[in-house]
Design a protein around this nucleic acid. Structure first.
Lengths: 369, 369
DNA sequence: TTTTAAATTGTGTACGCACACACTTTTATA
DNA sequence: TATAAAAGTGTGTGCGTACACAATTTAAAA
């Protein structure tokens, strides 16, 4: 191992536009035009300046840049009405953090809320938004067709948008941040079945909307889950039963669970493909299924409590604050700094246990301060 | 659900120091003095200004602030000599990212390297650093006593420092970022034993330095691992054997493994408490132990390959780039922005499988761009 | 060649904060 | 009361970039 040249100094003073100008014998204005591809520069000087720029690896001072760019803009975030302690509150926190950072640019974010279980409320909100067109939109394409229609109208008006949480590949947007639902479902299965006694019953649950439809995400997670099941031939080893739970009908839910128990071998595992495991646990307890291996999603405070108490075996998390935060920052990158962005960005599938969840939550919280 | 007031506008124009000054009938300079607690302001005006400041929740424009603060400073990062594809390369990447961001402040980071397996090289580097005192130091207290001595000297000279990766509670520093080793070891055990056939043998390995000492981290991880074992009474159900592997003596390593195999029931699981599982796998393969359940640490590229190929069951990761990055940012917070910092910051214990590792790696990479 | 238009280049100011310095008022000292 | 010191307050400039606009040069048209 060579440790002789142990000290790798780099005392090069930061160069400024004025320095580049002097080095190339032009004025700062000309360099500026080259930097921003604004034309109005002779080929000869442009080339000369470009050469110097990447020869000395010139990068403008971001602070000065940010300061002088004043873009009075209005972003709109269209998200499900946040309930305290619910999933969307986390995403909103991330958006709020980004908002705080970019407010110095003169950018403002307005929230529009809709009812997650009511397509109409979504459509109405989109119309309201379009009636006073903002400079950019952040939303989640939960309702696929309505979202596509909305995106189309935004495109017509040349209003860029970003997608958060849920993805629809066909929607053109600046960026999407969210979890790879299929893989997160696959992972749920992997965690659930590892070490689970054979010939037992596993209950898959989805929280459905009163209308009867499961969410985009939940459907894909289940698909990923079943992919694992089939890849490992588990249908022969386990009794896999799916039931839909309806948030507003406890009696029916309990009946469904009791039905499963009556007509199958002992239940050894359960999973829910939406964010309220703590609620599933409550139901399981009521029918005498406390203590079975259970897996759920998202680090909601009540989920975390259930995890630490041992009622939930694993939580699969997806950094919602990060999603909200990054989605706004991508918009900034696109609109203000005019840098290229990636369309599809997957957030990691985070596996949490009762022992490590505290650090996870605290870390995220501090990052989002 | 109330969606009537669906639009939560916030059009309040950002206030500037000059605005605060006008609102309180003083000059900008006076407001500035209050903002920075620089005294030289009459009690009467100070109170008035303070009232207004938090009444309107005034926050200085960060861009202007950053631009006008010019702190020509020199930070020193003292880390193990990075080998390509090794763990410390990731930490260095994080530090480098922070460096890029803060270079606009006029801050420069110099690297000093030492040999991870040679205490003397560490001590020599610390002496070299102290002979040209920097404004702050980043290092990892791998060698406990020598690090404490170094920290003491830094404190004498009033040079703040931050710790990365490894922690020594008694060292006073601005901040520490790293993983909770005990919990990560505990988690490794949890993952390894879940579903593992009883009465089989489990091999714990540590990569030891030629001198014979295991690293700080490795020792604590093992402790956490054994804590899980004891809490679940697994010593009765499994044969748990520990062996030390020495990087420069393959023959000896293979002999040790063969010994274990000869004198115990079939080996069903293995874990290594340092970052090179891929290397452990190579050894396992050589003695005919391919295919057993194996757990290792860190998302080194070769580890990731082994994970995706199915040779490693789980990797436990710790966001090294994030550690390097955040540690520098904390220094900045302390020295430049004079904001309070947290002493001990745990990075999450990330559990990776072959299916989800790609998204994890790519996400980290993009964050670090 | 003169006039006009187009292309190219330079200059100056705003962005909002931090800080040095100058200036004014009050208080202490002779 | 005069003088010095201290306390309090205001003004001005620099940080580096972006961009509008003025100034200059070159090309095109008359």
């Amino acid at each position: 191992m060579d440790l002789t040249n142990t000290c790798n100094s780099e005392h090069r003073q930061r160069l400024r536009i004025a320095d580049i100008a002097r080095m190339t014998g032009v004025s700062a204005g000309t360099v500026d035009r080259v930097l921003h591809n604004r034309g109005r520069v002779s080929d000869e000087k442009r080339k000369k300046i470009e050469t110097v720029i990447d020869q000395v690896d010139f990068r403008p001072n971001v602070f000065a840049r940010s300061l002088s760019i004043k873009k009075e803009m209005r972003f709109v975030a269209l998200i499900p009405a946040v309930e305290a302690g619910g999933y969307w509150e986390y995403i909103k926190n991330g958006i709020d953090k980004a908002q705080r950072e970019i407010s110095d640019h003169g950018i403002v974010i307005e929230y529009y809320y809709y009812d997650q279980y009511d397509t109409q409320s979504f459509v109405m909100a989109t119309e309201q938004i379009l009636s006073t067109p903002p400079d950019a939109v952040i939303f989640s394409p939960e309702f696929i067709e309505e979202s596509a229609a909305f995106a189309g109208k935004l495109e017509q008006k040349n209003i860029p948008c970003v997608l958060v949480d849920s993805n629809v590949e066909t929607i053109p947007c600046v960026a999407y941040y969210g979890q790879h639902s299929l893989k997160s479902g696959y992972t749920a299965a992997q965690l659930l079945f590892t070490g689970l006694p054979q010939n037992s019953t596993v209950v898959l649950t989805r929280a459905v909307r009163p209308g009867g439809a499961a969410s985009n995400q939940a459907i894909r997670r289940e698909k990923g889950f079943m992919q694992y099941v089939d890849e490992h031939n588990l249908r022969r080893k386990y009794h896999i039963v799916r039931i839909d739970l309806c948030s507003n009908n406890t009696t029916k839910n309990l009946r469904a669970l009791r039905n499963v128990m009556a007509s199958h071998p002992p239940v050894a595992g359960a999973v829910i493909f939406s964010s309220k495991v703590y609620w599933l646990i409550e139901n399981l307890v009521k029918v005498g299924l406390a203590g079975i291996k259970t897996i759920g999603y998202d680090e909601l405070q009540r989920n975390v409590e259930a995890l630490k108490a041992g009622h939930v075996s694993y939580l699969i998390a997806q950094r919602p604050e990060m999603q909200g935060y990054l989605v706004v920052k991508e918009l900034l990158k696109h609109l203000v700094y005019k840098q290229p962005t990636h369309r599809t960005n997957y957030v990691p599938v985070d596996i949490l246990t009762g022992e490590i969840v505290d650090e996870y939550v605290q870390f995220n919280r501090r990052l989002n301060e």
